[in-house]
């Protein structure tokens, strides 16, 4: 009990690492995350002068360079902001910070490269164990919890059918997420459920969706568009077949990929789907009574504003 209380307290104020996507195409995720934090009385302290974590691209040029980039973000959080928890809503950022943590703990060569680059760049090297990286799902789940959400939302999302889509980077590969698959209460890498839990607490009906952790082809969204379109179309069609009104996302790359290739599937393959795509923070925000524009819902390409009006979620 006391451990739980401590943890909740620890997540009341967290270091916030939005990353490049949330400042650009994933802006709706950023504004909705901030709006939800404000509404719930949680404090987000932006990591000072952050840099790109390396996303899905830098590792293909050099994996250890990616480790350095992610380690610099953690170093800033620890040494400039004095934070020991860093919350990253983007799956890519979250994954990379976790991977850096893992590599710095287990691989001497990674420590060497990060140490050397940090020294030359003129900042303290991040060392494994100095900070804990969490996802936006962990943050709300721990800081507010389902009980807390139930009280605050009063089942506002009742009647909304949701397919929860987690994608790849939140769960794979398993070894960089040592806290997952630890039995009851912990997140599962094969059948993740934190987003399901939070949205159910807000009254939504989660449909049986088999492609929760399927790949949307985000890494090649522009460089191998046909593959991405086919992968996305699978996800969209499976969600529709499951009866979902909306796919809830927790990653800007997945979200944008689903939206873009929904359009592309129609234009290029003549395959139309009409399921909407919204960030889980946008859905939680609506459940908390925040206006849709303040949650950036009008900026979603999948015209999800129509659904908000249809379902009287304002």
């Amino acid at each position: 009990m006391s451990e739980k209380a401590n943890k909740t307290k620890k997540y009341d104020t967290v270091g916030y690492y939005p990353g490049c996507a949330l400042e650009g195409s994933g802006n709706g995720y950023d504004v909705s995350t901030r709006a939800v934090a404000k509404e719930l009385g949680l404090r987000l302290k932006d990591v000072q002068n952050w840099n790109c974590c390396g996303a899905m691209e830098v590792k293909n040029v050099d994996p250890k360079l990616q480790t350095y980039l992610s380690a610099r973000v953690l170093s800033n959080a620890v040494h400039l902001d004095r934070m020991n928890v860093v919350m990253a809503p983007c799956n890519g950022c979250y994954h990379n910070l976790k991977k850096a943590e893992y590599d710095l703990k287990h691989d001497a060569q990674s420590r060497e490269v990060v140490g050397e680059l940090s020294r030359k760049a003129g900042h303290k090297a991040y060392e494994a164990g100095q900070a804990e990286t969490i996802h936006a799902l962990d943050w709300i789940k721990e800081a507010i919890g389902e009980e807390g959400l139930r009280e605050r939302t009063k089942g506002k999302l009742a009647g909304l059918k949701v397919a929860n889509y987690y994608g790849c980077m939140y769960v794979r590969p398993r070894h960089i997420f040592p806290e997952k698959d630890q039995g009851p209460g912990s997140e599962s890498t094969s059948k993740p459920h934190f987003m399901d839990d939070l949205l159910a607490a807000a009254g939504a009906e989660n449909v049986e969706f088999p492609l929760k952790t399927a790949c949307c082809g985000g890494a090649h969204t522009l460089s191998d568009s046909d593959t991405s379109t086919r992968l996305v179309l699978n996800i969209l069609q499976a969600a529709e077949a499951a009866g979902a009104d909306v796919i809830a996302t927790e990653c800007p790359t997945c979200h944008t990929g689903l939206e873009m290739h929904q359009v592309r599937a129609e234009k290029r393959f003549g395959k139309k789907t009409s399921v909407k795509i919204m960030y889980f923070t946008q859905l939680l925000g609506l459940a908390l009574g925040i206006g849709p524009r303040r949650l950036g819902i009008h900026t979603n390409i999948s015209e999800s504003m129509d659904l908000v009006i249809d379902k009287c979620l304002t």
Binding site: E23, W50, N51, C52, E57, V58, V61, L222
Partner: peptide
Amino acid sequence: FDREFTEQVVARGRIE
């Protein structure tokens, strides 16, 4: 794509 992206990160620390 990976090179374009990496070059922008290396040049400025962030991408757009």
